[in-house]
Every structure is written in structure tokens, then in C-alpha cells.
Design a protein around this nucleic acid. Structure first.
Length: 227
DNA sequence: ATCCCGAGGG
DNA sequence: CCCTCTGGAT
């Protein structure tokens, strides 16, 4: 789809700094940080991970962590009981099934407790340089608005992932995900998208079909004059 | 109120 | 398909 690739090119120019915003120094750290990032800002995750990894630096250390201590550290990230279970479970699984190493394969990553397809693709794309398409809440929303895939497919994140994969070359998958996510966070918001400040509005079928963020619209008027 | 780069269970 | 798990920022 030419239109999709054109929009991606423009997003790439708009967000040259797009990338993973979680701090990590190893695949294990990225795996843990990504699990913790569910329904939480990356800033908050990055605030707890240094202390987390200072105390439990690897899977074997984390697998034998005290549940209460771990919960205490994870508390500010939200869902802390579920996240504690995930970290204890995935650390143990890494130790006894993968010799303490994080597998670089989607089918193996998703067998780890607390690791779904989205998390697995983030780890592949950013820790292993294996192209990974991340269909999270932002990507799903933008792909729907952009109409890059038919509505029937857009309902299912896995089908969406495969449909997008068919439009873009493998080498673009990881950065495409980052750029869509950045655009979703900065302009193409769920509730009031800043269509007036959108660099791909001219190719977007959803442009002008919904309410525009009044804050963004006002900012646009002051800097560029009214439309 | 609503949002934050979800996953697992029923 | 729905629901729940969770807390902090805006």
C-alpha cells in the first residue's frame, strides 16, 4: 500500500528521535521493564528499574526474591501483585528452561509468564535486532484511523500485525512501531486527536471526522494563524 | 474523569 | 467477548 508507506516516511521525518524509552542494559532488563510498562508511563518504570536491578540483577537472583520485597519495589508501577507474579514466574522459567538466557524467538518468549505478543515483539526489536511489529493500543488505533487494514482485520491485533507486516519491509517493522506509538502519544490521541497539528492529516481518512483537541488547535492558531 | 507502549482468566 | 488487576499524573 503506497499511501501507508508514504505516511510512514513522513512520520519518520517528523519523529527522527523515535525509539524505545525504557532504560535497559540487557535483554533481561528490557524484558522486565516491558512487563512493568503495562498501563504505566515509561518514566515511572525507569524510576524503579535501577533499584530493582541493583537488588536482583539476573533471572536467578530475581527468581529467589522475596515476594513482599518485590511487591514493595514494584508498587509504584501499578498492578504490582500481578507484576510480581510475572517477574517471579518468568525469572524461574528463564532459569530452568533457558539456562538463565532470554530467548530471541517470539514463540518461546510468549510462553513466559506475563509475556504476551506485544512484550515479546518489543524485546525482539529492541534487545535482539530481530524485526518486531508491536501492535499495542496506539498502533491499533492509528491503523484503524489510517485505514491501513480492512475493519474486519483491525478488530484482531494478531491479524493486524500480519496485515501490516505484509505492507512494510521487515527492516522497517521495529521503527515503524516506534513512530506510530510516538505519533499516537503526541498527536493522534484516543480522545481528542490534534488533527490540526498532524503531519499526515492529508492522507488520513479520519481527518476532520472527530473532535479536535482544543488545546492543540489553540496552539496552532497562535503560531500559524487561524485556518 | 481519563490516560498510561497489557496479560490472563472466566 | 468481558472483566480484573493497580497507582500516579493531568
Amino acid at each position: 500500500m503506497r499511501r501507508a508507506r508514504k505516511m510512514h516516511r513522513v512520520l519518520a521525518e517528523t519523529y527522527p528521535e523515535a525509539g524505545c524509552e525504557l532504560d535497559f542494559t540487557s535483554p533481561f532488563e528490557l524484558l522486565v521493564a516491558t512487563v512493568l510498562s503495562a498501563q504505566t508511563t515509561d518514566r515511572r518504570v525507569n524510576a524503579v528499574t535501577p533499584g530493582l536491578f541493583a537488588t536482583w540483577p539476573d533471572p536467578s537472583a530475581m527468581a529467589s526474591a522475596s515476594r513482599a520485597e518485590l511487591e514493595q519495589v514494584l508498587r509504584p508501577t501499578g498492578f504490582f501483585r500481578a507484576k510480581t507474579d510475572s517477574l517471579l514466574g518468568l525469572s524461574a522459567a528463564l532459569v530452568d528452561r533457558y539456562d538463565g538466557q532470554v530467548p530471541a524467538r517470539l514463540d518461546e518468549l510468549v510462553t513466559l509468564p506475563g509475556v504476551g505478543r506485544k512484550t515479546a515483539n518489543v524485546v525482539l526489536g529492541n534487545a535482539f535486532d530481530v524485526p518486531g511489529l508491536t501492535v499495542d493500543t496506539h498502533v491499533a488505533r492509528l491503523v484503524r484511523r489510517f485505514e491501513w487494514v480492512p475493519p474486519e482485520i483491525a478488530k484482531d491485533p494478531v491479524k493486524t500485525e500480519h496485515a501490516i507486516a505484509a505492507i512494510f519491509p521487515r527492516r522497517d517493522w521495529t521503527m515503524l512501531s516506534h513512530r506510530l506509538i510516538w505519533h499516537g502519544r503526541r498527536r493522534c490521541h484516543a480522545k481528542k486527536p490534534a488533527c490540526g497539528a498532524c503531519p499526515v492529516a492529508r492522507w488520513c481518512p479520519a481527518f476532520g471526522t472527530g473532535p479536535t483537541d482544543p488545546v492543540e488547535a489553540a496552539a496552532l492558531v497562535t503560531t500559524q494563524g487561524p485556518a
